[in-house]
């Protein structure tokens, strides 16, 4: 066992998988010699050589197209999009091509590609770096979307993602990269995709979150308990496509109230999908409408406004109070 930050856990998982499976290739912008702009791939090129860990030209569509071609030949590419805000450049390659490879070829060719990408607010990056765009891929059949919130989960989920027979988008929240350490076993373990984690038990309301918002939700829950004596159950979704509705419903049956916390803008994203699924699967267990604690439907703001825009524990707390009063 070792204490690791999330970025160390990710490097460690890539290292394990490069060693275990020679079909795994790691590539992208600055991932080779430089070890990635966040050092997620540090030391991997020295260890596995420039044929397995390599720098590509600066072209996101090219990187994912390359991955698709490698995947149909049986490789397990793990390309990096340097910041997820740049994913629009590769949108057709992901949603139009990668996600449909299995379907269009009747399973003869598949695309077991894991796209790693940093995203997320609160670290005052320049424009187009921090956007939460996972919702776009919740509406993309053929793709899975994974967002870990802890170092332990990051390793287990990344190993599952690389071994998954289908394309996975693996989103790494920048604020969580080095914000805390956790015990991470050095041996091989996986966490199944599509299975949520109840990270705090409670009986008065359910808070559903993922990525950095899990920690915001936990802070709000502690505060709620201290101030009001009310206990929120917090669910870390871990995978936003597919969404683990079973865990959510089981919790709502107990709490009868729910708040979804999401770092992405409010409309038509993962949170909206979660609310729709709760509506279909648990409406008779609800005492109040499900509320969303999200930023407004504006363009992701510039750095000076960012902290005001992002959901805070205080905002989640207010939303919890509201859901109790309805």
């Amino acid at each position: 066992m070792a204490q690791m930050t999330m970025i160390q856990a990710i490097t460690h998982a890539l290292d394990l998988e490069l060693a275990r499976d020679e079909r795994v290739l790691v590539f992208g912008e600055d991932v080779g010699k430089n070890g990635g702009v966040f050092r997620a791939t540090e030391g991997l090129q020295q260890k596995y050589g420039p044929n397995r860990v390599f720098d590509t030209p600066l072209a996101e569509s090219g990187i994912i197209g390359l991955a698709n071609g490698l995947a149909i030949q049986g490789f397990r590419p793990v390309p990096e999009i340097q910041f997820f805000g740049f994913v629009f450049e590769a949108f057709d390659q992901i949603a139009g091509q990668l996600a449909r490879t299995r379907y269009r070829t009747g399973g003869r060719y598949t695309a077991p590609v894991t796209i790693r990408s940093p995203f997320g607010g609160g670290v005052h990056t320049p424009e187009m770096h921090a956007d939460s765009l996972e919702g776009l891929f919740v509406q993309t059949p053929g793709i899975k979307v994974v967002i870990p919130s802890t170092p332990y989960d990051a390793k287990g989920l990344l190993l599952s993602a690389i071994r998954d027979p289908d394309p996975v988008i693996f989103l790494e929240h920048m604020k969580l990269y080095r914000s805390f350490r956790q015990e991470v076993p050095e041996d091989d373990y996986t966490i199944p995709l599509g299975v949520a984690n109840v990270v705090r038990e409670g009986k008065h309301a359910t808070v559903i979150a993922y990525g950095a918002m899990v920690h915001v939700a936990l802070k709000a829950a502690e505060q709620w308990s201290k101030e009001k004596g009310l206990e929120a159950e917090v669910i870390d979704l871990r995978t936003v496509n597919p969404i683990d509705i079973e865990t959510i419903v089981a919790s709502i049956k107990k709490t009868n109230r729910a708040v979804v916390v999401q770092e992405a803008q409010r409309s038509a994203g993962a949170a909206a999908e979660i609310v729709a699924q709760i509506n279909e699967n648990a409406i008779y267990h609800l005492e109040a409408p499900v509320l969303r604690a999200t930023p407004p439907d504006t363009v992701y703001p510039f750095g000076m406004i960012e902290d005001e825009w992002l959901p805070t524990p205080e905002y989640v707390l207010k939303t919890l109070d509201r859901v109790m009063s309805l």
């Binding site: 197209g65 698709n68 071609g69 490698l70 139009g96």
Partner: peptide
């Protein structure tokens, strides 16, 4: 491989397959 319908997207797939070979 299936024909690519959006134009030119498959040119990159050929590059990836060539890398594999």
């Amino acid at each position: 491989l299936p024909p690519s319908v959006p134009i030119a997207t498959h040119v990159l797939h050929a590059v990836g397959a060539a890398w594999a070979s």
